[in-house]
């Protein structure tokens, strides 16, 4: 199983990094930050199951 997963994601190489002046971040960490921002935005707008629409007068 670990061999199959290892074949899908080859980690046997030096890490890839985003560099912007003094700022440096690995692609892995960058992907997690993007996923957090996306989840946050979706949580703000996605309809919550069972929620009734508010009546506005």
């Amino acid at each position: 199983m670990s061999d199959i997963l290892g074949a899908l994601v080859n980690l046997d190489h030096p890490g890839h990094y985003i560099s912007w002046g003094w700022f440096q971040m690995s692609y892995g960490n960058f992907a997690v930050v993007v996923a957090m921002v996306a989840t946050f935005l979706v949580a703000l707008v996605a309809p919550f199951p069972g929620r009734q629409k508010e009546k506005r007068s």
Partner: peptide
């Protein structure tokens, strides 16, 4: 309260 029915309150 009804306003808790939002995904942002789930985390």
């Amino acid at each position: 309260p009804s306003y808790v029915s939002s995904w942002i309150y789930v985390f």
